[in-house]
């Protein structure tokens, strides 16, 4: 964590930063000693929430990497996907807690496939309709358009799914995967982590090892050069939005399994995920995952620990305070690089 305040900074601020990190560590240790059971339970919750955040944060970072655009509509695509999954699961597939285990697994797998396609199509359409025409426009114009798209998607969600929260019956048993002392970990929590890991591996393989992924990296580093090497830039951008949308879809479904969701859930969650992406270093895929896990943990520790924890009323202030802190002390994020372009 000390790397958060790099050595290139004046010693005054880095000392201040180190001091805060030190305080945080002491706070965690005291809590660990006082209430070890709470500590580990909360740790597991943090990892679970963090993996859902990671899916959304990756969408921000992928799109930022290729267009240098903060796609504010991303969180709303996530919420819309979550709402749509509830319709698929409850109304179309008709799953409930009495469905056989095989039926639930098959049904969720099918819902996952549908929602991945749905998220990809919605996100690609947003890019095609709203952002593509602004390729040559000043950045601010695109940014404002993204804010506008966020409201539009949110209102579509409101119009189609009304103001009520949607949630699922406990499809995945809330029985314990393991129980050590009074530390428990439930199947529905593990499910989120288990579903996230293969998605992350698949994404990493796509970006690192496929031709399309290589094209993406090329466009993000030097778009004109990529074009004259033979990369179809528009198609690559569409592909990136499709990937981001698919991740938002998976995130929406997993979030729905854990929590409840309504038309405006994506707004705040999107901002949290965006903070995670910035914390890790926007444009950096591993950074987005790391940032999301850290924010998931911060949130869980803050809300779950008993000794001197500010409590859930303060979660937002802490998360967005962190955002300001990063932008001031280390704008390139934990894993980001300082590039000559200032990205």
């Amino acid at each position: 964590m000390a790397a958060l305040f790099g050595t290139r900074r004046p010693s005054g601020t880095s000392l201040l930063g180190l001091f805060f990190v030190l305080l945080l560590i002491i706070w965690l240790i005291v809590n660990l000693v006082k209430t070890p059971n709470d500590f580990f339970t909360v740790l597991l919750i943090g990892i679970t929430t963090g993996s859902v955040y990671a899916l959304i944060a990756l969408g921000y970072t992928l799109v930022y990497g290729i267009l240098q655009l903060i796609n504010f509509a991303h969180g709303d695509v996530f919420a819309l996907s979550g709402l749509f999954s509830s319709t698929i699961i409850l109304s179309v597939l008709g799953l409930d807690e009495n469905t056989s285990a095989l039926g639930i697994i098959g049904g969720l797998a099918l819902a996952l496939v549908i929602i991945v396609a749905f998220g990809a199509v919605v996100n690609t359409t947003i890019e095609f309709v709203a952002y593509r025409r602004l390729r040559q426009a000043p950045r601010l114009a695109v940014l404002i358009t993204a804010v506008g798209m966020s409201f539009i998607v949110q209102n579509v969600s409101l119009a189609v799914f009304d103001v009520n929260f949607r949630s699922l019956p406990p499809l995945i048993p809330e029985s314990n995967v393991f129980k050590i002392g009074s530390v428990t970990y439930q199947w529905n929590q593990l499910f989120a982590v288990l579903a996230t890991i293969p998605v992350l591996l698949l994404l990493s393989w796509l970006v690192r090892s496929t031709k399309q992924g290589k094209g993406m990296r090329a466009v993000s580093q030097e778009p004109d050069a990529a074009a004259i090497m033979g990369v179809n830039v528009n198609r690559t951008i569409s592909f990136t939005f499709a990937l981001a949308g698919a991740l938002a879809g998976v995130g929406g479904l997993l979030y729905l399994i854990e929590f409840n969701i309504r038309y405006d859930t994506g707004f705040e969650l999107g901002l949290i995920a965006f903070t995670a992406a910035v914390l890790g270093g926007i444009g950096n895929l591993s950074g987005a995952v790391l940032g999301a896990l850290i924010i998931g943990l911060i949130q869980a520790f803050n809300e779950g620990l008993s000794w001197a924890a500010p409590g859930s009323d303060w979660t937002r202030s802490i998360v967005f305070g962190l955002l300001i802190g990063i932008l001031v002390f280390r704008p390139e994020g934990l894993l980001g690089e300082r590039t000559p372009e200032g990205a």
């Binding site: 090329a218 030097e222 004109d224 004259i228 033979g230 990369v231 179809n232």
Partner: peptide, 28 residues
Amino acid sequence: EPPHDVVRLGISQSPEGRKLFPRMSVLE
């Protein structure tokens, strides 16, 4: 013709200011 088709037809370029992909290796 869009740029990605021009290169397929047999025209390639070393652009002004080189425009390498800075975070890729030489081989990449």
